[in-house]
């Protein structure tokens, strides 16, 4: 009973934030009008219909999905690599995606190409990390991380080259804004990215107990009966799919993947059976809230990556003090 109740809370919570996202904004629509627009779209005022169905709803849903994906991938990476300091960009996903996006902006005029290339290069970066970290036919956790760091820096150099040759008046600002992250241009077309994203999250969710066991170290995990290679593949693969899809929609928002899992740990402990769903829910709420703020605080949109760090950091410090680190200190 208690588990069912908790599950319902974890699912409802992000929905509340999405509902809130529909309510607030510079174009004011009353609660009644919103409900009418949702229930009977055909009868609604065309302005309201456009704002709700084409601006606020897709944006809020995308923010929630990306938040969940980034947070859960971060939690999974931290567990599998036994390192509480890594985020989902560890294996080069962020810089790979960044390079893909820059490539599209500089040579293909941006647009839909940005998302596609960001996604493709994010996956490519992880594959490269894997093979860079392969020493005499095996890839251990340490060499994999090393491979990730190397490949990340390689793509970071490529990004710099593209920035260097980009048109400073049109392309360079686009690149800069992409790296700060934003959900401003989200439409239903982006929802295709939910497919790999959901698949990735599902893989992590299903393997969540095994993440606990993998965090005991490869040798002990094997002795405890876990096929280490198989589950590493499933979990890292899942996290990569989820992060790549999220990053291609929103631009890079590294903060969520690093910090939200820790907030989750302070609230429910380290057991990934609880932590994984809680990270998803918290990540979704957090990024939806940040997106609301990013479009409401000032007349010009504030990039969401900036807000995450600005608002999230003091909140994190507060929690750290309040929970006394939840077993960490």
């Amino acid at each position: 009973m208690k588990r069912l109740r908790n599950a319902i809370i974890l699912i409802l919570l992000p929905l509340v934030f999405i509902a809130a996202a529909l309510l607030v904004g510079r174009y004011s629509i009353s609660l009644r009008e919103i409900i009418e627009t949702i229930i009977r779209p055909s009868a609604a005022a065309s302005e309201n219909y456009r704002v709700i169905w084409y601006l606020r709803l897709p944006r809020a849903v995308a923010a929630a999905m990306c938040g969940a994906a980034l947070a859960v991938s971060g939690a999974a990476f931290q567990g599998v690599f036994r390192n509480p300091l890594v985020n989902s960009g560890l294996l080069g996903v962020s810089n790979g995606a960044g390079f893909g996006a820059c490539l599209a902006i500089v040579f293909l005029g941006g647009g839909a190409y940005t998302y596609i290339l960001a996604f493709v290069f994010a996956l490519l970066a992880v594959v490269l990390s894997y093979f860079s970290g392969r020493v005499s036919k095996v890839t251990t956790s340490v060499t994999l991380i090393l491979g990730g760091v190397i490949v990340s820096s390689f793509f970071s150099a490529l990004i710099s080259i593209l920035k260097f040759i980009a048109d400073p008046y049109s392309q360079l600002p686009s690149i800069t804004f992409w790296f700060m992250g934003s959900f401003a241009d989200v439409g239903y077309l982006h929802f295709y990215a939910f497919l790999p994203m959901a698949l990735g999250m599902l893989l992590i969710f299903l393997s969540r107990w095994r993440i606990n066991v993998l965090s005991m170290g490869d040798r002990e995990a094997a002795a405890l009966g876990v096929d280490v290679k198989k589950y590493q593949f499933l979990i890292i693969g899942g996290a990569t799919l989820a992060t790549a899809s999220a990053v291609c929609i929103s631009g890079t928002i590294g903060w969520v993947g690093l910090v939200v899992p820790h907030i989750g740990r302070m609230l429910v402990g380290n057991n990934n059976v609880r932590l994984i769903p809680v990270s998803m829910s918290l990540g979704a709420c957090f990024l939806t809230l940040m997106d609301i703020l990013s479009r409401c605080i000032s007349t010009a949109e504030i990039p969401i990556g900036i807000l995450c760090a600005l608002i999230g950091t003091p909140f994190f410090v507060y929690l750290l003090k309040k929970t006394r680190g939840g077993g960490w200190a």
Binding site: G79, R82, N83, P84, N212, S215, M216, G217, R219, E220, A223, L224, R265, G269, N270, N271, G326, G327, W328
Partner: peptide, 13 residues
Amino acid sequence: YVPQNHSVTFPYT
């Protein structure tokens, strides 16, 4: 298996 060394990363209960 009871290992010789065990390093604690995440403080599970």
